[in-house]
Design a protein around this nucleic acid. Structure first.
Lengths: 285, 285
DNA sequence: TTGCTCCTCACGTCACGTGAGGTGGC
DNA sequence: TTGCTCCTCACGTCACGTGAGGTGGC
């Protein structure tokens, strides 16, 4: 029989680990002196300790290990738990590999760029008008009239954020189709007309993966944010999967241009091959 | 200005996260009402929040992020921190990939085998004799005389565990060279002779990576443990790198054979190629 | 008697999630 | 007045590491 000190030296673990495993009933000493509380371990407990350590090395939690050792679980169940843990590990590997690549990408571009964050956005109701535009200025004028008229006409509390969708390739060409309006906080029914445009209410599809960045200042300089988004999307193995959106976080009739805060959004999807090698890599092994 | 609820909805994070970041001074609201404690965030704080989220996605801790954002660290320092994080991630990836492979290996062999644990063992002093052996029985006789004589002759407290080293290929051939004796707890000087063999004291080299498993019962059945060790070593991409050892955890003159507890040890080293592909894989990317 | 080992609290870790319990503005 | 949102505790998480403070055997 060995006391914690010697047993821990034999197994090359810490005394505290033995105490802890005793405490959580994972490995009780063969005998505990009721007077002194001294723990006495038998050499024959080494295999159990070894099994615990081996399973721990596979990344299983102590609770899982306890179940595997104690509750008379069948080989099939153990097999299942290991399969589960394997899947879990694979997920972690894929995630960490993505992180790894992101760091590499960020190390390449000199770190100081706008920060890109992935989000998902739910389905929303959208009160908007859609029209061909020829310049950014034209857009700003139209946005101006919408912002000054709509809140009064339909009630401020019914409106959420102002949002623009660019249906053409880009803002920065001479002819493009764009859509402007408000996300709705609650439904409205009466038809609305602003600046000779008929507004419609429709569903905006939910987007699972949206690459976003925040731009502060005039829309005329938003290309900075778009550049960052584009770079990020390519560097991290995604591609565009829909029309870009702009959410105006801060926008009232008297907001100055330099105080604008706009979230630029690109729906994206993962490019499946060949950049994303890890799954193949794991399958081969 | 937005309250926590709205700001959290805009940024798609939880309110608790905002409270927590306030608490740890990572992102203070633009204004806090001293009366009510209400937090007011400005839209212009979104870029900072986004930067925090983006860095968090890279796996950095909030403490690291705080340093990167606040202490006016230079771009070079940020670069350094990212490089460090990259190395850290690579280490995690390699570890997890090993775990992954171990699980696969364990799933192949029907799970119920002896458990193999890796350890490192320090340099130790070793009082031993070395001799050619022809059978396991001969070994047991020799071990018997050492165990019954040495503790009395040199003092029990000077001795640690009994240990055997097999210098030949294996126990289970007809002729092999073996070494038997005790690990020393303290130095001894006088020459010792047992059963017409001269004992010597020498250094036993430290071993960095030792694959071990525990065998309970007679040494005549230790091949079970050896089989498990061998399988494990091959399946996990290691190779032998020294002579096998056997540490007798429980061994006194009157220990019965079936009560023996022996730790079987193989010094091993990693096979560099081609099984261990991950580093290549990362470098290519 | 001095050292060494043993013991039991109990805090700290990391980044929040999850109630509990109470208050203020529409 | 009823709901809704806000707030501040404070516990729980996971597997121990790290003292603090005190006791028993050689």
């Amino acid at each position: 029989m060995f006391l914690t000190g010697e047993f821990s030296r034999i197994a090359r673990v810490s005394k505290r680990l033995l105490q802890y495993y005793d405490e959580i009933d994972l490995l009780k000493p063969a005998h505990t002196d009721p007077q002194t509380g001294y723990r006495y371990y038998s050499a024959k407990q080494l295999p159990r300790l070894n099994r615990i350590l081996a399973l721990k090395e596979l990344g299983l939690s102590l609770e899982q290990i306890a179940r595997m050792l104690d509750d008379a679980v069948s080989d099939d169940e153990i097999h299942g738990m290991l399969l589960l843990q394997k899947a879990e590990l694979e997920r972690k590997l894929v995630d960490d590999l993505q992180r790894f690549r992101r760091i590499e990408a960020r190390l390449q571009r000199q770190s100081h760029q706008a920060d890109v964050v992935l989000k998902s956005v739910p389905q929303q109701r959208y009160l908007s008008l859609r029209s061909m535009m020829t310049s950014l200025e034209e857009c700003l004028v139209l946005i101006g009239s919408l912002v000054s008229e709509l809140p009064e006409r339909v009630g401020k509390s019914n409106l959420s954020h102002f949002l623009a969708i660019i249906h053409g390739d880009s803002y920065f060409t001479t002819n493009f189709e764009a859509e402007f309006g408000y996300l709705l906080a609650s439904e409205i029914d009466q038809p609305i007309c602003v600046a000779e445009h008929q507004l419609t209410v429709r569903d905006l599809a939910a987007i699972e993966t949206m690459a976003t960045t925040v731009h502060v200042g005039s829309p005329t300089t938003s290309h900075i944010g778009y550049a960052a988004l584009g770079e990020w999307i390519e560097a991290n193995g995604y591609r565009l999967a829909g029309h870009q959106r702009e959410v105006f976080i801060q926008l009232t009739p008297n907001t100055r241009e330099e105080d604008l805060v706009i979230e630029l959004q690109f729906p994206i999807e993962k490019v499946v091959s060949p950049s994303n090698l890890l799954p193949d890599f794991l399958d081969k092994s």
